[in-house]
Design a binder for these strands. Sequence first.
DNA 1: CATGAATGAGTCTTCATTCAT
DNA 2: GATGAATGAAGACTCATTCAT
Lengths: 227, 227, 227, 227
Amino acid sequence: MTGKTNKSIERKQEILRVAQKLFNIKGFQETSINDIMKTVGAAKGVFYYYFETKDQVLDTLVEQNINEIVDGMVQVVSNPDLNATQKLKYMLREEFRVSTSRNDFNNHLHNIKNVDMHQRIMVSMVEKIAPIFSQVVKQGVLEGTFKTEYPLEVCEIVIAGVHFISDLGIFHLSREQYIKRIKASEEIIEKALGVEEGSFNFLSEMLKETPDRIMDAKAIKEHYDEI
Amino acid sequence: MTGKTNKSIERKQEILRVAQKLFNIKGFQETSINDIMKTVGAAKGVFYYYFETKDQVLDTLVEQNINEIVDGMVQVVSNPDLNATQKLKYMLREEFRVSTSRNDFNNHLHNIKNVDMHQRIMVSMVEKIAPIFSQVVKQGVLEGTFKTEYPLEVCEIVIAGVHFISDLGIFHLSREQYIKRIKASEEIIEKALGVEEGSFNFLSEMLKETPDRIMDAKAIKEHYDEI
Amino acid sequence: MTGKTNKSIERKQEILRVAQKLFNIKGFQETSINDIMKTVGAAKGVFYYYFETKDQVLDTLVEQNINEIVDGMVQVVSNPDLNATQKLKYMLREEFRVSTSRNDFNNHLHNIKNVDMHQRIMVSMVEKIAPIFSQVVKQGVLEGTFKTEYPLEVCEIVIAGVHFISDLGIFHLSREQYIKRIKASEEIIEKALGVEEGSFNFLSEMLKETPDRIMDAKAIKEHYDEI
Amino acid sequence: MTGKTNKSIERKQEILRVAQKLFNIKGFQETSINDIMKTVGAAKGVFYYYFETKDQVLDTLVEQNINEIVDGMVQVVSNPDLNATQKLKYMLREEFRVSTSRNDFNNHLHNIKNVDMHQRIMVSMVEKIAPIFSQVVKQGVLEGTFKTEYPLEVCEIVIAGVHFISDLGIFHLSREQYIKRIKASEEIIEKALGVEEGSFNFLSEMLKETPDRIMDAKAIKEHYDEI
DNA sequence: CATGAATGAGTCTTCATTCAT
DNA sequence: GATGAATGAAGACTCATTCAT
């Protein structure tokens, strides 16, 4: 009775993996537990051994996704050798990386059908990620590099706005539109923090390394339509 | 003769009214057509005489809500006697008014359960309201009062961010938290447009006239729990 | 009170016309009275002024269709100047003509979805057309040109068999298959009546004048799929 | 382990049994899944555990019925020791036996209301049974006992015609009428194959052993009316 | 730990028919 | 004669969840 066997944990992860995949493809509401367990290849009852409700799967999934981001960030934030700007740049880079990778076919968390999951992630972003960012912003204010009266709330607004707007599961953007939105994001971040224009243009720089298939909503849509 | 009787139009509006109310209380998914028509006090078939699907009701509702806002704005925007700042102030004031009135009990469009409607409204906001704002912003840029390289995209981000963050159906905020978020919104708007600090503080001023029951998420929640 | 106005009869015929058209395209079950009256361009209530039930329309339609064939035949049958072979040839020719015209796009009575109507026509065929044919066959037996012990029953079987088999609404035949089935029909008719081989080959001769679009099930199917 | 439990298979068969019974009594369209499952004595959901749609039940039923006939026939057909006439006689006898047994109360597949099932069986007959018959006919042609230019098509027509005409679910025949139609069938089969008159009179011979309750439509009708 | 059969309330939707105006 | 709004029973189908084995 060590609590959970290895096999047991794997089983649970397998269910989560399959659930996430199906939620992305068909949406949460449209995915039945039957669908999940058939894909997993186990009996329906197994599901209820690992989870209590279908909703719990969604919660777990969202939490896992958020934690992945959070975990990476806290390390940076707690590093005493970095100044605010350095930390922020690292964090934004990281988030952007995760964000775009999410648009990738095999991990496309933001399908348009998937309103439920989407909203929960947005909420988690605001509630869990924004405070981390605001901590760094506060540090920057103290260091004299950033300037804002409402660090937390500004982070919340910017994070919510930027994420919603650049979600290729919601908006079917062309590459050009997408780039423009990212550049506007840079502009807003710079202005919100009161830093020099162009300081955060590394985001749009990163886009250049991003393959089309991740950034072009049409390509993504067509991919899913094929399935 | 005119195609639709007065009585008929009223009936349709009555259904819409009831539907909106129930969607707010129970959420879209959780509201059945049965629920709606029982409340209306008519046979289920009547629903399908006026609408083709449950989804159509949602669409109509969202459209009506957005149009209400749009209609008010276009008049202001097309007024040649106003400068960009004047227009923007008017529009923000108006939007804020509609927005908070929406939080009112009898017209509480943004219940947390109501993910579907919520998301559609957010999308409509970005797609329909942002372009109107950006038009005014462009005017301001020409007039030399505003400064931004991406008028449309900046409007999109700010609108999305501010709306999401200040939605009392999603976040259960205390009065203080709410005020802070509104103030941060002001800060961001000012910075995004490159205007002087404090130029748009009329928003938080308006809050002072807003009764608690609309602004305090706890009060709202308790109200619904009573039902 | 002359019973029925001219306008009234026209109205009724219009409804029947539209009903037949829609039954052919969508099938009887799938066509609602709403569909019919919307196409007619009159209020739903009008329908019930002219018919008592939806079923009555089907009955009327089948009867009209059968009567059209019957009327043409009785004239020939009662003509004392013709011998049995002459009569039969004429009748077959006529029936074949009506039959193929039915496969035509605008009068395609035998859509595959239209099981109900189809069966009723088959039954009517056996009950109303077979007796007429058998009368002629009996004449032929007396004249010594035909030979069979069960004139009525043989007519019933042949009519049922030939019609079912050559119904392009049921079977999706290629032109070749269709021709073969018609030729086999000739063979059976000749044998059943005990006449010389080739005596009734005029049926397949008639095919040569029939355009593909009527005879090729694929063309017909594609036509309907476009709608 | 084997995929399906014994009990599970039984359940499925039970549903099929009940469905067939109800379809016969009330017709396919008029039988609801509720009806079926209430009779089975299980929850509605059980139905959908075993079948995907109501239509699938019909398909399964038709297939089962046809296969029963086909299975018996292929054995005879593939027997190299029998000549065509022997095979044909055996097959006809067999089919007649199944056909009349179907008219029996407990297995009355052809109720007049049951247009859908009826048509599907007719189509299956033509598509699955006719080819088997035609194979034997071809053998007979080679052996010099039969004579026809279109073996397959002739089989199709005769099968369709004879079945339709002798279906007591469609036509309410008296015993005399029924016998006449069977005798006419014999005549047509003999003529179609070009064999000596009287060669296939064993069919009407078989009738003599058939009890009235199966052959007399009135008796059958009365039986159902009692229910 | 696993199975998979069973549950049954609940969903949206359809439509022939009626009837007051 | 005509209108078209209203009826409401009935239909097929879904699915999260339970539980005996």
